[in-house]
Design a protein around this nucleic acid. Structure first.
Lengths: 206, 206
DNA sequence: CTATTGATCGGACAGAGTGTCCGATCATCT
DNA sequence: AGATGATCGGACACTCTGTCCGATCAATAG
């Protein structure tokens, strides 16, 4: 009985390992050349498996792409959540969220660019893929909402419609990510994050 | 001789008309279902021409897509430039730029979403298409630069690195556009624009 | 040690779309 | 009426997708 169990578990582990192997390769290739321009043949070859085997793990191209995004999602949320505990004030937390997200961009700019690109894209894969990204947005929005509420309660932020505040901050972050992902050689991350926070807090007026 | 000339001109006009006809249809279909999911057959059929005729006007799918973006580009720049003359102060001009851009989004959200999506996308078409969009960004950045310089010179904006200021404003606008393009039923445009301007000027701090 | 099982391979297959090409057709201008 | 040029429509080769299936190989059970 124990043998059987551990044997099954092993298979599971191997299976996941193989799966991740394909996902990693796909994420890299998708990032380099775009989702549409990489044939399944090539992904399979690069991952060292047969094309037909890829279709054992993923029903189709779209599901593979979704799996790529899913991994990034959990990674991002984990990183932000971890940093979350460390800091206390709303300003610090806001700074931390932005810095963590930019860090994620720096980790794999090509694929992050791709993720933004896929966002809201009315293309075949995107209906389902969009759902995956919507989850990320929701998670981030929830965190931002907490920041905004804290900021207003403590009198550090001025009083405006909280939803609007979240939208505005979100827009700024979205833009910052898009810009950074597009930059060939992004400048120092800390400065970029600090500039964004400063701007979000005080704007440009004299 | 004059006949010949006007005859040639007429051909030119007809040619352009046909071309625009295809572009309009393509823009709509691309907006509705994405660039990859609309076969050339369908575009041709919807435009009322043979598929082979489309290939007379456009070398390939990518060139057609680029033509779609090009039209939007000129339209956008014209609209902003026109409004530009009317207003004087940097704040008013900033507001006007944002409002005009959001108006463009409202005109054809589906296609605008698509344009954002294509932005920086490392996909087949996107290398050349990206160039087209880069031009738009450049034009807008130039306008924003003027706004920033005016604002600082007149003491209405605080003094910071102008390039940074342009980037930050650009990020907010980019995000605002993306968010609006993604909304199923966007709220009142004037309010959205006003909120963005207010945010850009004063931020969230108390 | 052998038989079974399950995963993987490799290749064939139909279907769909792309871009090219060319003869047939039609309208227009001479 | 005849020449000219745009358009049509369909055939073509090519590529990619997703499906399928027999062959192969390794680990495991008996």
């Amino acid at each position: 009985m124990p043998e059987r169990r551990s044997s099954d578990d092993l298979k599971e582990v191997i299976r996941d390992f193989r799966r991740d192997q394909v996902i990693d390769v796909a994420r890299r290739l998708f990032g380099e050349r775009g989702t549409t321009d990489v044939p399944m043949d090539e992904i399979a070859a690069a991952a060292g498996v047969a094309r037909s085997t890829v279709y054992v793990y993923f029903a189709n191209r779209e599901e593979l792409l979704r799996a790529c995004l899913k991994g990034m999602h959990t990674h991002l949320i984990d990183a932000v959540a971890e940093a979350w505990e460390a800091d206390a004030g709303p300003t610090q937390r806001l700074a931390r969220i932005i810095e963590e997200m930019l860090a994620r961009v720096d980790e794999n700019p090509a694929f992050f660019r791709l993720a933004l690109v896929t966002q809201g894209a009315p293309s075949s894969g995107a209906a389902a893929v969009g759902a995956e990204l919507a989850l990320i947005s929701l998670d981030i929005a929830r965190l931002l909402r907490t920041v905004v509420d804290d900021g207003m309660n403590s009198g550090q932020f001025r009083m405006i419609e909280p939803d609007l505040a979240v939208t505005l901050i979100g827009q700024q972050i979205y833009g910052a990510i898009a810009v950074r992902a597009a930059e060939p050689i992004p400048g120092p991350r800390a400065e970029a994050a600090a500039a964004a926070v400063e701007f979000i807090l005080h704007g440009l007026a004299a």
